[in-house]
Amino acid sequence: MAENNCTLKTTPGYFAVSEHIIDVAALRAALGSEADGAVVTFEGIVRNHNEGKPVRSLFYEACSELAQGEAEAIFQEAEARFGLTRIVCVHRVGALNVGDTAVFVGVSTAHRGESFDGCRFIIDAIKHRLPIWKKEEYLDGSSNWVNCQCREDSP
């Protein structure tokens, strides 16, 4: 009867910005239904290097209200293009360490092709459109807001 125990609102999609560790299992549980034959999930993980520089940690900042509206617009586009049944996305903010999950995207559809394509579309759109910013802190003590062409080298 009940398709799952998750109470997340997943139509057209669930989006949240969170200061807490992303509970991947709980988000996965909100995906899929008896009519869905495919679930695709993606996790963006903090890695220890970028553009040749060793990264120690990341700091993410978001404008939650604007991000919510833009995420809903992305979900509506994705739903129309790929027929996604469910969409779940959570983006972390605050200080993250190497290995932490920075973003989770999960979708479900009747068939796998639409799930793969829809998930890819959503993560790409999120990276380019959501008002979320990333500051990289490097092993040498310097830091940089990514894409802002402004490097603040430590003295």
Partner: peptide, 10 residues
């Protein structure tokens, strides 16, 4: 008003 610098989510 919010001014949005170049974004870098994900």
């Amino acid at each position: 008003i919010v001014f949005v610098p170049p974004v870098a989510g994900g």
